[in-house]
Nucleic acid binder design. Sequence first.
DNA 1: TTGTAAGCGTTATCAT
DNA 2: ATGATAACGCTTACAA
Lengths: 343, 343
Amino acid sequence: MKFGQATIKDIARELNISSSTVSRALKDYPGISDETKAKVKELAKKLNYRPNAVALSLRKSKSLTIGVIIPEVVHFFFSTVISGIEEVAYAHNYNVILLQTNESEEREKAAIDTMMRNQIDGLLVSFSKDTTDFSHFKDLMDYNYPIVFFDRLPALADTVNVVVNDFSGAYQATTHLIEQGYRNIMHLAGPENLTISKERKKGYIKALEEAGLPIREKWIIPCPLGTSEESQRLTEPILAAEERPDAVFASNDVAAAGAMMAAKKLGLKLPKEFGAVGFSNWQFSSMIEPPLSSVSQPGFEMGEKAAQLLLQMIDSQSSEAFQAKTEVLDTGLIVRKSSLKNS
Amino acid sequence: MKFGQATIKDIARELNISSSTVSRALKDYPGISDETKAKVKELAKKLNYRPNAVALSLRKSKSLTIGVIIPEVVHFFFSTVISGIEEVAYAHNYNVILLQTNESEEREKAAIDTMMRNQIDGLLVSFSKDTTDFSHFKDLMDYNYPIVFFDRLPALADTVNVVVNDFSGAYQATTHLIEQGYRNIMHLAGPENLTISKERKKGYIKALEEAGLPIREKWIIPCPLGTSEESQRLTEPILAAEERPDAVFASNDVAAAGAMMAAKKLGLKLPKEFGAVGFSNWQFSSMIEPPLSSVSQPGFEMGEKAAQLLLQMIDSQSSEAFQAKTEVLDTGLIVRKSSLKNS
DNA sequence: TTGTAAGCGTTATCAT
DNA sequence: ATGATAACGCTTACAA
């Protein structure tokens, strides 16, 4: 009874009635006299009574809290997703508990342990880059524990997922570069074991193939870190070579920006001599010079959708809600100056 | 007992001993035979026993959870702070529950209500822009409830706070512009009722005064929204005027970027004809053209410090920990091309 | 060395 | 229309 918080018992004692009556009066149960209801409610208000959610959780084995496991918070896309999750949770009177894994599998397992100890009702998961063993998720799913994966898909059967259409986003972006007249398009790829990276790479390749352009493996560069320094460093030698690309499709905006910096450093004119399209439409993309074209990901919607699916699983417990499904959200191509060859 | 989670009772039953013995054995209490301890621990492991944190919270009136109330997650600075909070909390086995207020005072009050219902052990608060009534915080403080305010300071006595040195950051930034040879420096200010905005404005004015430069009220423009569109729109007429500023010190990087866009649109050469320094050193600042000089705020450290102070209040409950104090973290000036007049 | 019982705050069940 | 009691899972005096 921290901070003088009043309990049902306090109210009961003061009014000389039983706690069950108080409990029922507070929730307008039938069979309680209007008089008692009024008295109880009045006193509750006066004492600033707040139901103890912890006691409720224990009693009902339900915490009205959902857990979010995410690689890092300081990431435009992820923070946008969190925001979407927050909104839906708030609207349904659920709380959000946040565990950041810093892309570490160990922290991920610890996070799950914490969530279980705290009787969290369900989990929204974007697992870390180098998670290869998914048994900690599998175990939960075997108990019918509600989990929705977002952005990153695990190598597990029968999961409920929300992703964006990475393939088509990448395909669109690359096709756009081709239509603009770029012919030698390199690709800065994401971490190799993530589905999103693979899909974006596939979309890139598909676009080249369809246009009858050659696929050059040496121009497909994985950027495991995803920092602009890394991509600048990796891109520079490629642009300095005899035969060089005239554009880049990057798996994320930061990498694209790094490539642009490399191109500038080598004195190339942007976007005429080197075009670029990124992925995720980060906040900064419109502010760099030239403004970066980018594939926009509906992060907020992803958070909303994932939270909605999870709450369905939690509330209904129907097998329908638990059925494997992958919700695919559409990307959009935001065309800015960086990819307009003849501007 | 969701998901087949084993409880102490299950272990007790299986071993034909009492739950108290199990409880004690699990925590190596003295006076339990090594044999029993071994048996209990073995079975606990086998059953994958996890202590029920909810039951513990109820028993101990302590949830090992701290709450973070923040205007918005999708914000480079705030998300960095959260990251720092997360790290410290994790290291001390505390959980973090996150409530976003979207800069609404009503949501802020609802957030506090939620936190109280859930027996959250303490609060880290950055209140919303238009909160003017702080009684909801005051009420808690009167009960000796642990709260640490960060970034934004409430108009309340005896609070524990963590802020950055906004005044000196702004002073440094403006002085730097002056030293570079800029003479007519405008200021894009933040929301007027926030202390941080006031402090930054003061630092700006102090620098001008010290340099013997005039303060021109018409060149001090509040940007309540803080978007680049807003600042671009507000800056354009000022730069188009007969007598125009030759530099800007902005209360945040986004506003600075907007001003730079306005200057470019009017054909001014950057940084020669128009210099700029922002605040917060957002991720994008190094990537725009010219790269933006900025006052860096130690967001991660702020989160760490705030969490540490809070945990001290929670753990010690000593009046020392609750004593009013304001931890001031130093800013740094990151000089990039946007403020180098003669580069 | 171990067991019993009460209690944290709430509600469901069964009485009255 | 209201009360008594048990239970959620765990800890902790107090007993034995």
